[in-house]
Amino acid sequence: HERALMVNRLQKLTRMLRVHPDPKWKQEQQELIKRLK
């Protein structure tokens, strides 16, 4: 369940980064990718 939330968050971040590349979001995205591996 928590994994699904993280995947959701990651997808949302990816969409937001396409619109507005924010370093903070980029960092969070990298963190999520690490944790999901």
Score class of each variant (00 low, 15 high):
2 E>Q: 10
2 E>A: 07
2 E>M: 09
2 E>Y: 07
2 E>W: 12
2 E>H: 08
3 R>E: 06
3 R>H: 10
3 R>P: 02
3 R>M: 08
4 A>D: 08
4 A>S: 10
4 A>T: 12
4 A>G: 05
4 A>F: 09
4 A>P: 03
5 L>W: 15
5 L>F: 08
5 L>Y: 09
5 L>R: 13
5 L>V: 12
5 L>H: 14
6 M>W: 07
6 M>D: 04
6 M>Y: 06
6 M>F: 03
6 M>Q: 03
6 M>G: 00
7 V>P: 02
7 V>H: 08
8 N>M: 14
8 N>C: 02
8 N>L: 15
8 N>V: 11
8 N>T: 14
8 N>H: 14
8 N>S: 14
8 N>Q: 15
8 N>W: 14
9 R>I: 06
9 R>E: 03
9 R>P: 01
9 R>Q: 06
9 R>C: 05
9 R>K: 04
9 R>W: 05
9 R>G: 03
9 R>N: 02
9 R>Y: 04
9 R>D: 02
10 L>G: 00
10 L>S: 00
10 L>W: 02
10 L>I: 08
10 L>A: 01
11 Q>K: 15
11 Q>R: 15
11 Q>I: 15
11 Q>V: 13
11 Q>W: 13
12 K>P: 00
12 K>W: 15
12 K>Q: 14
12 K>A: 15
12 K>M: 14
12 K>R: 11
13 L>H: 01
13 L>G: 00
13 L>P: 00
13 L>Q: 01
14 T>S: 10
14 T>K: 10
14 T>G: 04
14 T>Q: 08
14 T>I: 12
14 T>P: 02
14 T>F: 08
14 T>R: 11
15 R>Y: 05
15 R>N: 10
15 R>G: 06
15 R>H: 11
15 R>Q: 15
15 R>W: 13
16 M>N: 02
16 M>P: 03
16 M>Q: 03
16 M>I: 07
16 M>R: 04
16 M>H: 03
16 M>K: 10
16 M>T: 15
16 M>W: 12
16 M>A: 03
17 L>A: 06
17 L>E: 02
17 L>W: 01
17 L>M: 06
17 L>K: 00
17 L>T: 01
17 L>P: 01
17 L>C: 03
18 R>Y: 06
18 R>M: 11
18 R>I: 04
18 R>P: 01
18 R>N: 06
18 R>Q: 12
18 R>H: 05
18 R>D: 06
18 R>A: 15
19 V>T: 11
19 V>L: 12
19 V>R: 13
19 V>E: 11
19 V>N: 13
19 V>H: 07
20 H>N: 09
20 H>I: 07
20 H>K: 14
20 H>W: 11
20 H>D: 11
20 H>Y: 11
21 P>H: 12
21 P>N: 12
21 P>K: 08
21 P>R: 08
21 P>T: 06
21 P>M: 08
21 P>F: 15
22 D>T: 11
22 D>Y: 10
22 D>L: 12
22 D>R: 09
22 D>P: 00
22 D>I: 05
23 P>Q: 03
23 P>Y: 04
23 P>N: 05
23 P>T: 06
23 P>H: 04
23 P>A: 08
24 K>D: 07
24 K>V: 13
24 K>W: 04
24 K>A: 10
24 K>N: 08
24 K>E: 08
25 W>R: 05
25 W>Y: 12
25 W>L: 10
25 W>N: 03
25 W>A: 06
25 W>T: 06
26 K>Q: 06
26 K>F: 09
26 K>P: 00
26 K>G: 03
26 K>I: 09
26 K>A: 05
26 K>W: 07
26 K>E: 06
26 K>M: 11
26 K>Y: 11
27 Q>M: 14
27 Q>A: 11
27 Q>L: 08
27 Q>P: 01
27 Q>K: 13
27 Q>H: 07
28 E>K: 01
28 E>R: 02
28 E>L: 08
29 Q>F: 13
29 Q>L: 15
29 Q>Y: 14
29 Q>E: 06
29 Q>V: 14
29 Q>A: 12
29 Q>C: 12
30 Q>S: 06
30 Q>E: 12
30 Q>V: 10
30 Q>N: 07
30 Q>W: 13
31 E>K: 07
31 E>P: 00
32 L>E: 01
32 L>F: 01
32 L>W: 01
33 I>Y: 06
33 I>P: 00
33 I>T: 03
33 I>F: 05
33 I>E: 04
33 I>S: 00
33 I>M: 04
34 K>Y: 08
34 K>M: 09
34 K>D: 05
34 K>G: 06
34 K>N: 10
34 K>I: 09
34 K>V: 07
34 K>S: 08
35 R>D: 03
35 R>H: 07
35 R>T: 08
35 R>I: 13
35 R>W: 12
35 R>E: 06
36 L>F: 01
36 L>H: 01
36 L>A: 02
36 L>R: 02
37 K>D: 05
37 K>R: 11
37 K>W: 13
37 K>H: 09
37 K>G: 10
37 K>N: 11
37 K>F: 14
37 K>P: 02
